[in-house]
């Protein structure tokens, strides 16, 4: 639990109790980090908060955060499901690469664009099923199993580009263009798409027993087995869901750049996704899926990234800040570390 004893607050015990109760709630930490980033923005770059209407749609840094955060958030949600089973999916970046290359290829082949959309999704799902097969049926450790596709996936993407000579993988597509920069009313289309998918995922996990089964398998595999839950099937479906979510992310990311660049696309996206889950309070030990919190985690990351961009710092600083963030979160979660800090503080007094 993320509770911290604040020295000196003992005399105001009722206040301290309320505070402690508030600190116990998982959402407190990510929200305070988010607020902190926003406050820093408010001081350094007040323009961050301006929202205006331009060309019939909303514009502004805050909208930009949501806009750019769509794809990473989708990947993170899929990752949250996999992590719920005590697994991990390292291959999401590579799946994006494969999806992108298939889109470019089928557009060159002249398929109807709606068909391409479904093909791309199917590719994502098949990639997820492959991971699920290795983990659930062959019993290979998730890190290792998904490493295979992580290594090979970008190569497969390049191969698909080669089918039509690999000369120029860029393309034009109105449908994808619409998904990328289009808007319905004032709102970017992809945000609406995201809300629909998020709702769908939530319904799938919470309005069927799938979420409960995934959490059981991740929480205590032996007990889940004895309770009659088909563990293999559940694990398999978790990776398939991750493939589906990553498929959507691949469509959006590919639509954004209207080309297939398997080597560079979605670089480090698996790490961002894992980070979003961890910031959202999801334990890598599995057993719980927090969709809303993961979304919040993805939002924190994207806000930070956009803020760094706005502040004029080189975007490369993102990495080091993310790294420090991960380290701090991990250290705070460690009992040994907290005990050591408390002992240190005690000695100083």
């Amino acid at each position: 639990m993320n509770t911290q004893q604040m020295p000196g607050s003992q005399n105001q015990s009722s206040f301290a109790a309320t505070l402690r109760a508030a600190l116990v709630h998982n959402a407190v930490w990510p929200i305070s980090v988010l607020v902190l980033i926003l406050v820093v923005n408010a001081i350094v770059a007040p323009a961050f908060f301006s929202i205006r209407i331009q060309d019939g749609r909303l514009f502004g840094s805050m909208i930009d955060v949501l806009y750019r955060g769509t794809a990473p958030a989708m990947i993170a949600l899929g990752m949250a499901v996999v992590i719920g089973t005590k697994g991990i999916d390292l291959s999401v970046g590579s799946i994006v690469a494969v999806v992108g290359s298939v889109i470019a290829w089928r557009i060159k082949e002249g398929d109807p664009h709606l068909v391409i959309l479904f093909t791309a999704l199917a590719v994502g799902i098949v990639c997820g099923m492959w991971n699920g097969l290795l983990v659930a049926v062959l019993d290979i450790q998730p890190i290792i199993a998904t490493l295979i596709l992580m290594v090979a996936g970008r190569g497969i993407g390049l191969m698909v580009n080669l089918i039509y000579g690999g000369t120029d993988p860029s393309f034009e597509s109105e449908l994808l263009q619409g998904l990328s920069v289009g808007n319905i009313g004032l709102i970017p289309t992809r945000l609406i798409l995201f809300v629909v998918i998020f709702a769908g995922l939530w319904l799938l996990l919470r309005r069927t027993a799938l979420g409960l089964f995934i959490e059981s398998v991740g929480g205590n595999p032996a007990a889940a087995q004895l309770a009659g839950i088909p563990s293999r099937l559940i694990k398999f479906s978790a990776y398939t869901i991750s493939g589906f979510m990553t498929g959507w992310a691949g469509i959006i990311l590919t639509a954004d750049v209207h080309t297939s660049d398997p080597v560079k696309v979605a670089m480090f996206s698996e790490l961002d996704a894992i980070l979003a889950v961890v910031i959202g309070g999801g334990s890598l030990m599995g057993g719980r899926i927090y969709l809303g919190m993961t979304l919040l985690g993805a939002l924190v990351i994207q806000t930070m990234v956009t803020s760094i961009l706005m502040s004029g710092m080189p975007p490369e600083y993102n990495l080091i800040i993310k790294a420090l963030l991960v380290l701090i979160i991990l250290l705070l979660q460690s009992n040994n570390f907290r005990a050591a800090v408390i002992a240190l503080l005690g000695r100083r007094k």
Partner: peptide
């Protein structure tokens, strides 16, 4: 080791086997 799923609530633990019997979609 074999019974409880500690992270889940009392309600979720109680209905787990019945739910498993019904299948995930019911």
């Amino acid at each position: 080791a074999d019974g409880l799923i500690g992270e889940l609530t009392v309600r979720e633990n109680i209905i787990l086997s019945l739910q498993a019997k019904r299948g995930w979609h019911h």
